[in-house]
Simulated assay, not measured.
Amino acid sequence: MGKQLQGRTFVSCIKTLLMAFNVLFWILGAVVLAAGIIVRVEVYRYMEVKQEFSETAPYVLVATGGLMLLLGLLACCCTAKGQPVLLYIYAAFLLVILVILVGSSVSTWAYRDHLKEGFQDGLTGALTQYHLIPSIASAVDTLQSWLSCCGIVNATDWLAMPYGQQNEPPYPLSCCQGARENICISLHRQGCFNTVVHFFETHKNILLIVCISVAGFQFLGVVLACCLARSINKAKYEQV
Rank of each mutant, 00 (worst) to 15 (best):
Q4F: 12
F200R: 08
T108S: 12
P162M: 01
V196G: 02
I232Y: 04
W146Y: 14
S107M: 15
H114Q: 15
Y90Q: 04
V41A: 11
K15R: 14
L33I: 01
Y130A: 02
Y163M: 06
L220N: 02
L86K: 10
L101N: 03
F199V: 08
A63R: 07
I136W: 00
T79D: 06
K3P: 04
F10P: 03
L71E: 05
Q120A: 11
T195M: 07
W109I: 14
W26G: 00
L5R: 13
H131T: 09
F21Y: 08
Y44N: 14
V210R: 00
E55V: 14
A92C: 09
A57I: 11
P134R: 07
C176E: 06
L228G: 02
F21I: 00
F25S: 00
I133W: 11
Q239R: 13
I100A: 05
Q4T: 15
W146C: 04
W26Y: 02
I209A: 12
L208G: 07
P169L: 09
L17V: 03
L24V: 01
E117N: 13
V102A: 14
K81S: 09
E48H: 11
C184T: 06
L70C: 12
H114Y: 12
P169V: 08
L28D: 01
A80N: 11
A63K: 01
T156P: 04
P162G: 02
Y163S: 04
A235H: 09
S231G: 07
G82P: 08
L28C: 05
V60G: 08
A137Q: 15
I37L: 10
W109D: 11
S54E: 15
G216T: 06
V11F: 04
G191F: 04
V222R: 00
V140A: 05
V197Y: 05
L98R: 00
S174Q: 04
A137T: 10
S135K: 15
K3G: 10
G36H: 02
Q4H: 12
P172I: 04
G2P: 03
K204G: 01
Q190V: 08
G103D: 11
L94M: 09
V214S: 03
S145T: 15
Q218G: 12
P134I: 05
M68Q: 02
A126K: 05
A91E: 05
L147M: 15
F25Y: 08
F10G: 05
G125F: 07
G72D: 00
G191A: 08
F119L: 11
L5W: 10
R230T: 07
A160V: 10
R8C: 08
C192A: 07
